[in-house]
Design a protein around this nucleic acid. Structure first.
Length: 482
RNA sequence: GGCGGUAUCGUCUAGGGGCCUAGGACACAGCCCUCUCAAGGCUGGAACACGGGUUCGAAUCCCGUUACCGCUACCA
């Protein structure tokens, strides 16, 4: 029997990494065990919900490739059913009308606190006579609908990650299910929708553990079959506290813009609260689906470590083909003003080769863009440290570079020929290869670090390489004179 | 305060009574490779929260303590 799962975010911000992780596990479960993965937008809090946030959730899900089955369900569209379910509870005597105002409740809560008592709703409205209730309703007195918790029992379920969890009902207050403005409270809306959507496995953050007994009671009162529950551990910031704005990037969109690959994000998120065992870490999406198991879910909250995410991204960057990377790198180059669309299309192979050179030494797309700069700009800037270190002795630098230029000018422009030629030159000059290549590297890129020097020469091309060496020589002479 | 959950290197984790002088990964340090930087390889430091049980034997099971987290709204 295939399970039906859902991811049910409220559109009050962006798609949070915690939410993304929850969505991922639901999705992986559906993919691995065979099931349906649905999406429900919980927009009942009209004050905080925005279309922009809903859009951000879709964008995030799309970027990550977390596709859902069936149409998106908007909780707000189910108001009538929620109200009907609340009425049903009333009719079945599972709930009662409560005329206490928020102010009164608040006051009683404060009083209890002052006495160091635990506040409990005292059920005074449940003791109202039938006549009194009718009188108040007729008089149009605002009231909520409160669920009457059967307090002589306890509620237990077998959680997929935690095993048996039991709550004594006496510790659970009679809770409101329908506000005085006739809108539903979260627990009712969730249960009503999950029943309607025929959800059979509720997998969500473990901050919902204490909501679960209330929801189970609602299922029972409504006469619906219970789903199974799986409560996933939370994700915390580096200080061990709940992930929030203070921790920097927490929205998946942030990572997209930081140059993280979706498959790396997924891989990293998958390892927060799950492990395939066998020391496996770097996985493709297909690997994750194949390996996913409910047996290896962790109970412990995990701390989000951006450093490991970057490393993971570096791994995926290295593994990805240049063809796979080009569609994401090209727009980044364009945004940085380094290459136009037309440029990339016209010299596709050249760009592919450049990506192959850079991806292995980059951890993010941004790294690649940064490192690609010398190959895409007409002129380069000399890094001051590079100049200080590699062109310390200007005279010999000029001599070296001039000799290289002469050699290269007559060399065949391919890797093997250039390498042979320059190594021979180093020999002739009685110097080491490094002593020759480093100053040349600065002349070609302005930097001390780059791909192999012959790859750089080849990528830059004969004309541009020779021009850069020429420019470096001129620069050094000018500095000499000054 | 009440209730619930969790507890292995700084971090992510393996581990589900003997295979553990606790394994892998990130980060950190060193070495190797090397034209630089990465990548890769090797090495190192680094953990079973504490206290009681159960058992021939516990990181693994039970109880308590502590710490952390969550819930305790006419928020979701």
């Amino acid at each position: 029997m295939a399970d039906r799962l859902r991811f049910a975010p409220s559109p009050t911000g962006y798609l949070h990494v915690g939410g993304a992780r929850t969505a991922l596990f639901n999705w992986l479960y559906a993919k691995h065990y065979g099931g349906e993965f649905l999406l429900r937008i919980e927009d009942t809090d009209k004050a905080r919900s925005t279309d922009e946030s809903t859009r951000a959730i879709f964008d995030g899900m799309e970027w990550l490739g977390l596709s859902w089955n069936e149409d998106v369900v908007y909780q707000g569209a189910n108001l009538e059913r929620h109200q009907r379910d609340a009425r049903l509870l009333l009719e079945r005597d599972k709930a009662y009308r409560c005329f206490c105002t928020p102010e009164e409740l608040d006051q009683r809560r404060k009083d209890a606190e002052a006495r160091k008592d635990t506040f409990r709703y005292d059920r005074r409205c449940d003791r109202l006579s039938k006549d009194e209730i009718e009188r108040r309703v007729a008089a149009g007195m605002p009231h909520t609908i409160r669920f009457r918790v059967p307090d002589d029992q306890s509620t237990t379920w077998n959680d997929l990650v935690h095993g048996d969890i039991t709550f004594p009902n006496k510790d659970i207050d009679d809770f409101v299910v329908l506000r005085s403005d006739a809108t539903p409270i979260y627990n009712l809306a969730v249960v009503s929708d999950d029943i309607a959507m025929r959800i059979t496995l509720v997998m969500r953050g473990d901050d919902h553990i204490s909501n679960t007994p209330k929801q189970i009671m609602l299922y029972q009162a409504l006469g619906a079959a219970l789903p199974r529950f799986a409560h996933l551990p939370m994700i915390h910031g580096t200080d061990g506290k709940k992930l929030s704005k203070r921790h920097g990037a927490t929205a998946v969109g942030d990572y997209q813009h930081l140059g993280i690959l979706p498959e790396a994000m997924l891989n990293f998120l998958a390892l927060l609260g799950w492990s395939p065992g066998n020391d496996i870490e770097v996985m493709s999406v297909a690997d994750m689906i194949r390996l996913f198991s409910t047996e290896h879910l962790s109970k412990k909250a995990a701390i989000f470590d951006p450093k490991k995410l970057e490393w993971m991204n570096g791994q995926h960057l290295s593994m990805a083909s240049a063809e796979r990377l080009l569609p994401v790198i090209a727009p980044a180059l364009e945004a940085a003003g380094l290459a136009s669309r037309a440029d990339v299309d016209a010299r596709r192979d050249w760009f592919l080769r450049l990506i192959d050179l850079l991806k292995i030494r980059a951890r993010t797309i941004d790294d690649i863009v940064r490192q690609a700069t010398p190959y895409l700009r007409d002129s380069i800037e000399y890094d001051s440290d590079a100049v200080a270190k590699q062109w310390k002795d200007r005279d010999s630098a000029v001599q070296l570079l001039s000799a290289v230029r002469d050699r290269l000018a007559s060399a065949e422009w391919n890797l093997a020929a250039m390498e042979e030629s320059l190594r021979q030159l180093a020999d002739t000059l009685g110097t080491s290869a490094g002593k020759l290549f480093q100053p040349l590297r600065v002349a070609l890129t302005g930097l001390t670090a780059s791909p192999g020097i012959f790859d750089v020469l080849e990528t830059l091309g004969r004309e541009r390489s020779l021009a850069r060496i020429e420019a470096a020589v001129a620069y050094l002479r000018k500095r000499d004179a000054a």
